[in-house]
């Protein structure tokens, strides 16, 4: 039921459905599991072009609403999380749909995500990395013109002595796998569903 509500983007009823499940004794962890399973199907539908951006966004927002109810009941310590991610669209680029989808998918998959927004200055990525000590930094660029900024962020992390502690993933319409290698990023993903798998892979390699 919860899984279906996520897949169908039943944003008006998700709160009632989650509450109902909790009241009838379903463990919060299992509710979360259902929501993640739903988002996985949404990711598959997006990849198969059964879903486009509107449908996928609606499912992601539905999950967010469910998560808001669930969060106080999931007493995660930071160490239980799968990893901490900061993510943003680089400076000069104001596109953020894809990046927001990635953030919501990652959160749905159990990562702690701090979404820095769009048009994020290089200095802000650095400052947030110092403050939050993320495992992963996600950079997005929609336009080929702002792609160059991604390399600049990674260089700046090197200069500041922060590069060794984080994994960089990049995505967006402009960059490619090859470009990711060129600028020394740790990974590239083509869409939100693949970004989740990439982060899981990178984190397991790290351990």
């Amino acid at each position: 039921m919860i899984k279906e509500a996520i897949i169908n983007g039943d944003i008006d009823n998700i709160e009632g459905i989650v509450k109902g499940a909790l009241d009838s004794g379903t463990a919060p962890d299992d509710v979360l599991g259902e929501m993640i399973a739903g988002m996985e199907i949404v990711g598959e539908k997006f990849e198969k072009k059964e879903y486009y951006v509107p449908e996928t966004l609606l499912s992601a927002h539905t999950m967010q609403k469910g998560l808001d109810l669930l969060r106080p009941l999931l007493p995660y310590k930071k160490s239980d999380k799968r990893g901490l991610i900061i993510i943003g669209t680089v400076e000069g680029d104001v596109h953020d749909i894809g990046k927001n989808l990635v953030a919501m998918f990652e959160e749905g998959a159990g990562f702690e995500v701090h979404n820095l927004g769009r048009d994020v200055a290089t200095s802000e990525f650095v400052a947030k990395a110092r403050e939050l000590r993320p495992d992963i930094v996600g950079l997005s660029a929609m336009m080929s013109t702002s792609m160059e900024k991604m390399g600049e962020v990674i260089e700046e992390f090197k200069k500041e002595g922060l590069r060794e502690n984080v994994l960089f993933i990049i995505g967006g319409a402009a960059p490619t796998e090859e470009f990711a290698r060129e600028i020394g990023a740790d990974g590239y993903a083509e869409d939100a569903a693949k970004a989740v798998r990439l982060c899981e892979k990178l984190m397991s390699e790290r351990r």
Partner: peptide, 8 residues
């Protein structure tokens, strides 16, 4: 921006 075209 310095590089690129107008964006909203």
């Amino acid at each position: 921006p310095l590089l690129g075209g107008p964006a909203v």
